[in-house]
Design a protein around this nucleic acid. Structure first.
Lengths: 125, 125
DNA sequence: TGACTATATTCCTGTAGAGGTATATAGATC
DNA sequence: GATCTATATACCTCTACAGGAATATAGTCA
């Protein structure tokens, strides 16, 4: 992966928010819609952009498409994701996204086992 | 400075190489031409892009325009420049640029006093 | 089967920006 | 003044997206 390709994926606000969220946990499209407050087409097209460049991977789970960062990541990608997480801590938009994510994780139970965090009842897939 | 604006500046290969070089030392346009091997217009226009977004500052010194990173940088910019430097170490293009820069520093004596800083010695790449 | 849900794709328009050629500008030198 | 050097800008074309509306697709469920 060329370094500049990473930045090309990072250079749109919506994609940046998506990647920042994915650095926390895998999510499905409707979660992005909910958290970012953006229409489905917009989310879906940015995810297609990222998929095409292998910045994210998608896996179907019943009706939902689960998106996540690739399991094996180039060190440059890893470094830049870490940098993004650090920088995002002082940005209200990204902080808001994390807050909305936390809220979602406590209220949303679909797809099945999605947010099976250790503190709640675990439903292995 | 919005985080995404940093990535917008980073998302072109020529700009990325320029910024990577500026993270080492201030340079003038003809140095970029020499090191990157790109035409003057191209360099000049990317520098204008970066200037407009306050990612670099320019100062005239006789016939030459000296470009450098702004003295006071947002922490996000600082973090991303550091990340860039780290990542660039494993990229042949960026390594080559550093090598060419070192060579320039040992042979070029214009503008006057340009590379006269005795504290700067050969750096490992 | 058909309806429903979640997501993707197609088609459209508008805009940013990348790169080239030619030209303009600012300062230095004669 | 004219001329040179270093750099910037204007003008052009072309392409990549960004975003929206409409539609298609894949899986689920009655």
């Amino acid at each position: 992966m060329e370094l500049v390709q990473i930045y090309q994926c990072f250079c749109d606000q919506t994609r940046l928010r998506i990647l920042h969220l994915l650095a926390q946990t895998p999510l499905c499209v409707c979660h992005f819609q909910e958290i970012l407050g953006e229409p489905q087409v917009k989310i879906s097209k940015h995810l297609a952009y990222l998929r095409k460049r292998e910045m994210v991977v998608a896996e179907r789970q019943q009706n939902w498409m689960m998106y996540s960062l690739p399991g094996k990541r180039a060190p440059e990608l890893e470094a830049n994701l870490k940098c993004l997480r650090d920088c995002a801590q002082s940005d209200p938009v990204f902080k808001g996204d994390l807050k909305a994510l936390t809220k979602l994780q406590s209220t949303c139970c679909e797809p099945e086992g999605m947010f099976a965090t250790p503190k709640r009842h675990g439903q292995a897939s």
